[in-house]
């Protein structure tokens, strides 16, 4: 008896969003089916991976990933150009971690200057990230948004506590915006509603439901992403139709599995392969669950995930 494939069609569709400008601009989203379900609907754009660079040298990154950028990570622009020219980065995520009051406490003007230099030096899309210090981010990201005016960059992350100023800044400077809340579909929905009620176009939003690392809560992020996608597609809920962003590298490269040397944990095997696999498996899982934009750190993990994405085309 022939097999009748039980295909699904959905009334909803993920917003199609272009980031950056010029020939290197990238478009994500646009699909009307679950991740990689090209057999029953449209999946016009591949997920995109942004290489993470920081405004200060990555002292707190584990050796496996720090050593890759040795020699270039002293300066964010040099670092980003290395990612683009040598490692094939199609997008850069600049994390202004040096603005955190517990780090270098860079001023909003200093951060904006870094953003300005970065935008002048690179031609790929830029994701501008604060230090996730809710209060400091609101002052830092206002200045950074002004520096990025008209570049169609992505600004983030707006959280419940600081969204008003950051949303206003993104709106005034015509930027895309990341809205982050903590591992709960209802919180994601609520924040997206608050943001659109301020007049921000929901088709310029990205939802960050909060990432996690393999073995450290991955299943929470995974299921929140799946539920967001199902609500967006099956229930046609426009507040959950922005593409999903997963900030993978920062969650992965702080867990024990990416740091403990093989000498200490002989049952865990090679530290280098383990670290790369930890980042790649976390990232691939989130792609399967619904992420369209990933922020990652190690070029080998990124390459593996790119090959994985390529294998999804059938």
């Amino acid at each position: 008896m022939p097999f009748t494939p039980p295909r699904e069609s959905y009334s909803g569709k993920i917003f199609e969003e272009t980031i950056g400008s010029g020939p290197k601009a990238i478009t994500v989203g646009g699909e009307n089916v679950l991740p990689f379900h090209s057999f029953e609907g449209a999946t016009p754009h591949k997920p995109v991976i942004a290489f993470e660079v920081q405004d200060v040298p990555p002292e707190d990154w584990p050796e496996v990933v720090k050593e890759v950028y040795k020699g270039v990570s002293g300066d964010p622009v040099t670092w980003a150009k290395y990612c683009i020219e040598k490692l094939g980065a199609e997008t850069i995520a600049l994390r202004l971690v040096g603005t955190h009051p517990d780090r270098q406490n860079f001023s909003p003007d200093e951060a904006a200057e870094t953003v300005r230099k970065m935008l002048a030096a690179i031609d790929v899309p830029l994701i501008i990230l604060g230090s996730q210090h809710a209060e400091k981010d609101s002052s830092v990201l206002i200045k950074c948004a002004e520096a990025a005016k008209g570049t169609n960059s992505v600004l983030g992350k707006a959280q419940e506590a600081n969204h008003k100023t950051i949303v206003a800044a993104a709106m005034a400077n015509d930027l895309k915006l990341i809205a982050m809340s903590e591992l709960d579909i209802n919180l994601s929905k609520q924040l997206n509603i608050l943001i659109t009620q301020m007049g921000f176009d929901k088709a310029k939003l990205m939802t960050d439901p909060m990432s996690s690392a393999l073995s450290y809560g991955l299943e929470y992020t995974y299921s929140v992403m799946e539920r967001i996608k199902l609500a967006a597609l099956a229930q046609n809920d426009p507040t959950l139709q922005p593409p999903i962003l997963a900030d993978v590298g920062m969650m992965v490269w702080k867990v024990k599995e990416t740091q403990a040397p093989e000498a200490d944990m002989p049952a865990w095997g090679s530290l280098k392969d383990r670290g790369i696999a930890w980042e790649a498996v976390t990232a691939a899982s989130f792609l399967i669950a619904g992420a369209e934009v990933l922020i990652m750190r190690h070029p080998d993990s990124i390459n593996a995930v790119k090959k994985f994405i390529a294998e999804m085309e059938v």
Binding site: A267, W268, G269, S270, A280, A284, I288, A304, V305
Partner: peptide
């Protein structure tokens, strides 16, 4: 490792691998 991950997440009951490495097993 990533293809096996996709199979684990999406419904396979047996996944056959070409080799075993401790880091791969752990992940």
């Amino acid at each position: 490792t990533l293809v096996a991950s996709a199979a684990i997440a999406k419904y396979s009951s047996i996944v056959v691998l070409s080799s075993m490495e401790k880091w791969k097993d752990l992940a």
